[in-house]
Amino acid sequence: MIELKNIQKSFDTKDGKFQALKDVSIKIQEGEIFGIIGFSGAGKSTLLRVMNLLERPDSGEVNINGKNLCFLSRKDLLKERQSIGMIFQNFNLLSNKTIAENVEFPLKLAREKKSERIKRVAECLEIVGLTNKKDAYPVSLSGGQRQRVGIARALASNPKILLCDEPTSALDPRTTENILEFLKKINKQFGITIVVVTHEMEVVEQICNKVAVMENGEIVENFDLKEPITEFHSEIGEYLFKHLLNLEAKVDYVI
């Protein structure tokens, strides 16, 4: 379970302090695919990066499976990060390493045995269907294939949690669909909790169980997508989700 409590984060800019996260609390249960949607600059990436402490909050708690990451020693934090995978909008693969070497990378960092590494790399490439590309370099792959390598790499160390920062925003619609299918599959198959930051509604609609809407460093809406949406607390919430508004449910709710 991921539980953020009262997270505040500000950045020093040349115009003074900029408050990127204003008292954000969020609770994500095990096995969920949790969406965080909002416009550019809302603070989504910052919030996601707080979850593995790539960004250390000014105040608040970051509890991952009951452990407050803020209190861990540097060494323990690095260890903890190995069980939290992350994928990125621009894939961020090592360009001078082959696909297999890229997937092997987190295992190398964790000082796994060579034989174990080879085995795991093969498994992960199999999962994303890129076994035949193992000796290729990232440059020769399409965007969708690169993101699949990103997924394989994130899976390599058997994470419990996968953080996704705009995983499909650099991809065309068809490839987007394909990547979302992979995310859904690994959530089902391995029970990995997925947090996905996006500005695309289709991502939320296609894979998320729950979603939080962010605006100006705050969470302004929380929806459980298994239940009908009955009311809005914000303009942006209405703007994004009005087509999902269930009027009948709303009537029930009002009465």
Binding site: L77, M86, F88, N92, L93, P106, L109, A110
Partner: peptide
């Protein structure tokens, strides 16, 4: 690309790595 550095950090890489 700082993104690649960030990816490594997210995997728990230390400074030397």
């Amino acid at each position: 690309n700082t993104g690649v550095v960030e990816a490594a950090e997210s995997m728990g890489a230390n400074l030397f790595q």
